[in-house]
């Protein structure tokens, strides 16, 4: 049990630290790797919160596919490091407002209390699948996401394609 606590709080600290590194690093590749670390530590937190299936899916989909895509684009476009602040002083205003928002958000969450159901067990893939097909709204949304992915696929290919030379 002590291992659970250490693992969870450790993962939470790593997630927060690497989240801060995502926005603090100047090189976009360092930001990408900090984001990968964030995602993996979030996967650990998902597993500790009872859904190992979603944890593994997080690693496969996010850290294993989406971030590879990001890395590819960064490397192929040779994205440079950030220089200086955003125009119009928006950066400094954002930091102030961000601090206020962070304090408010954490205060709201911290003052709530959680009483957990006593007969809980960790969920497996079969439970997620049953839940998906149990009620019609999830079922329709599931089918709709397949169409969404198809349209995103076609859209990405069309947008990123090189223009054909005239006359061909």
């Amino acid at each position: 049990m002590i291992l659970d606590v250490i693992l969870f709080y450790g993962a939470a600290i790593v997630a927060l630290a690497s989240g801060i590194f995502v926005i603090a690093q100047r090189n976009p590749i360092n930001s990408a790797f900090s984001l990968i670390i964030t995602m993996c530590s979030l996967a650990v937190m998902f597993a500790m919160l009872g859904s190992g299936f979603i944890a593994v899916l997080q690693v496969v989909v996010y850290a294993g596919a989406i971030m590879v895509l990001f890395l590819f684009v960064i490397m192929l476009l040779n994205a440079k490091q950030d220089e200086g602040d955003r125009a119009g002083g928006i950066g400094r205003a954002a930091i102030v407002l961000g601090i206020i928002l962070a304090v408010q958000a954490v205060a709201v969450v911290w003052n709530g209390s959680a009483t957990l159901p006593t007969n809980y067990r960790d969920t497996a893939a079969v439970d997620v699948a049953r839940g998906l097909f149990a009620s019609p709204r999830f079922l329709y949304a599931f089918e709709a996401t397949s169409i969404l992915i198809l349209s995103a696929l076609v859209g990405a290919i069309v947008v990123a394609r090189k223009e054909k030379a005239k006359g061909q």
Binding site: V68, F72, D122
Partner: peptide, 25 residues
């Protein structure tokens, strides 16, 4: 003996891509 055994292997092998990307970069 993980509940999500096969998927855990898939997750780790997805992370293996980074080794090659980073080695090249």
């Amino acid at each position: 003996d993980l509940n999500v055994g096969v998927l855990a292997f898939f997750a780790v092998s997805s992370l293996g891509v980074y080794g090659i990307v980073l080695a090249g970069y």
